[in-house]
């Protein structure tokens, strides 16, 4: 098993947080994992993405040239990365901020109303967790429980945030479960 993942969206959507959480969860599951954030001139409204590789084997190159899994939280990210996805790969789309359909016919696509689900939990800031929860169901690259139990590593001491983010992960997972 080797999954090369790009998670992308705009700055402020918690893209790097989602990448780090996925990385921690993969570490808990005893997989090899690397995560490279885009860094530098990112700001709220700009674009942000990260490369995550999860593998059973030792990871040589940490750079994702052609992702087997793309998770996009906004339109610009789909426009930028759609062509790079491996044939037979998967794309998870935040359908609330991506008003178009994926054009590729050789990939599996899952649409998740990320913002709507997050707002039901009180804030669109949870969109990243909703999308990650749904991705966990659709791809099985990491278990929901591993994501949930990794949150304290990133939010040490912030009990309220841990609880609300856990809720958002579960909401995304359950949406995907129901939608199939």
């Amino acid at each position: 098993m080797k999954e090369e993942i790009i998670i992308a969206g705009f700055g402020g959507q918690g893209i790097l947080f989602a990448g780090k959480l996925l990385t921690w969860a993969s570490l808990i599951e005893d997989n090899k994992v690397t995560c490279i954030p885009s860094y530098g001139a990112e700001m709220r409204g700009g674009t942000a993405h990260c490369h995550v590789i999860v593998s059973r084997e030792e990871i040589a190159s940490p750079i994702v040239e052609k992702p087997s899994l793309l998770v996009v939280l906004n339109r610009q990210s789909l426009d930028r990365f759609e062509k790079r996805v491996l044939s037979g790969g998967r794309i998870v789309v935040n359908s609330d901020l991506v008003e178009r359909k994926v054009e590729r016919k050789d990939v599996r696509v899952y649409y998740v109303p990320g913002n709507e689900l997050a707002e039901k939990l009180g804030s669109s800031l949870f969109t990243n967790m909703v999308m990650l929860g749904a991705t966990s169901f659709y791809t099985g690259i990491v278990k929901l429980e591993s994501l949930v139990s990794s949150l304290p590593n990133l939010l040490a001491g912030k009990e309220e945030l841990i609880t609300s983010n856990q809720r958002a992960l579960k909401a995304g997972y359950e949406y995907a479960h129901a939608a199939g």
Partner: peptide
């Protein structure tokens, strides 16, 4: 290099 500085790994 910058990638090694930024990369996160166990």
């Amino acid at each position: 290099d910058g990638y090694l500085g930024q990369i996160m790994e166990p």
